[in-house]
Design a protein around this nucleic acid. Structure first.
Lengths: 156, 156
DNA sequence: CGAAGAACGTCCGAGTCAAGATGTTCTGAT
DNA sequence: ATCAGAACATCTTGACTCGGACGTTCTTCG
């Protein structure tokens, strides 16, 4: 990877799209550094978090749709998490097609630790702004992020 | 691609990282839809825009660093643009290693049209917010996007 | 019942991305 | 002048993404 220019060098053409992607890139990198210490990807942590808060009520497809992950991408992520013993795919007695992902105790443990660490990272970002600014930012991001239509490329 | 859940279904765990990525995803998709009408990717448009505003003063490496693109990714993008006759790689008489990317008249033409169309799309997003909000959002994104350290994965 | 269609998880293949290696050219120090 | 090292563009390689196809299972309707 090349050394990136500090941003001020090219201020003329900053459109929302580029800014958003770049910001997501940066924040994502900070998150990735943190989750790497726990041996999971940010996506893995995201999945674990969802499973921890939402007790095995979701099929793999629903889970992927909720998190904005492609089904095959979620598959390989679940494979990794399962191999690491952090989740289990539990057959649904009611519907034999379904193999509900369930977080294990080990997974819950790790998720809690990683989640706390990430909260710290996130707080560092939040502290760059006032409370009022954060409220605006949050509302704006939710506004932009929300929407019914499925999205093409994920990169989550 | 699966139908995505409307966002409100899972509000508990929205961290900045996820919101940013999702927002970037959505806005990026809107931009991609628009640029597709002109036969280029958003990334292609980004490169053209940079070249149009910055008259062939950058090597490929510098250009990639400025835009946050990996050198190999930029390479293949330049290949496409060159094949489409939108740019040229001009040998630098001063330094035979360098093949400076230059936008062609055709490229400039297309960039202008696509740029106008994208400005329209962007305005639609801006109109969701007040002027004061936009100022906050813009400052916040610049704050987050800025930074010296190179970033791992691009996805731009 | 039985058949048609939908939903689930999985697999496959084309396309994309980026780290590292390579060959050429430039620069700076001896 | 020459040699070592850096910079540039390119190529190679391995991993990842994602749309689409597949087999199984469920549901609905005749």
């Amino acid at each position: 990877m090349e050394e990136q220019q500090p941003i001020p060098a090219c201020m003329e053409k900053w459109d929302i799209n580029w800014l958003l992607h770049r910001a997501a890139q940066r924040v994502g990198a900070a998150f990735a550094d943190e989750t790497a210490k726990f041996g999971v990807s940010p996506r893995g942590q995201l999945v674990l978090q969802a499973l921890a808060n939402d007790e095995g009520q979701r099929t793999q497809l629903k889970l992927g749709a909720m998190l904005g992950l492609d089904k095959t991408t979620l598959m390989s992520e679940l494979d990794k998490l399962e191999r690491a013993g952090l989740i289990l795919r539990v057959p649904d007695p009611k519907d034999r097609r379904v193999r509900t992902p369930m977080i294990t105790d080990k997974g819950r443990e790790l998720q809690k630790q990683a989640g706390d660490a990430l909260a710290e990272v996130e707080r560092a970002f939040r502290d760059r702004f006032t409370r009022e600014e954060m409220a605006v930012i949050r509302r704006a991001l939710i506004n932009l992020a929300d929407g019914e239509a499925p999205v093409h490329g994920s990169c989550l």
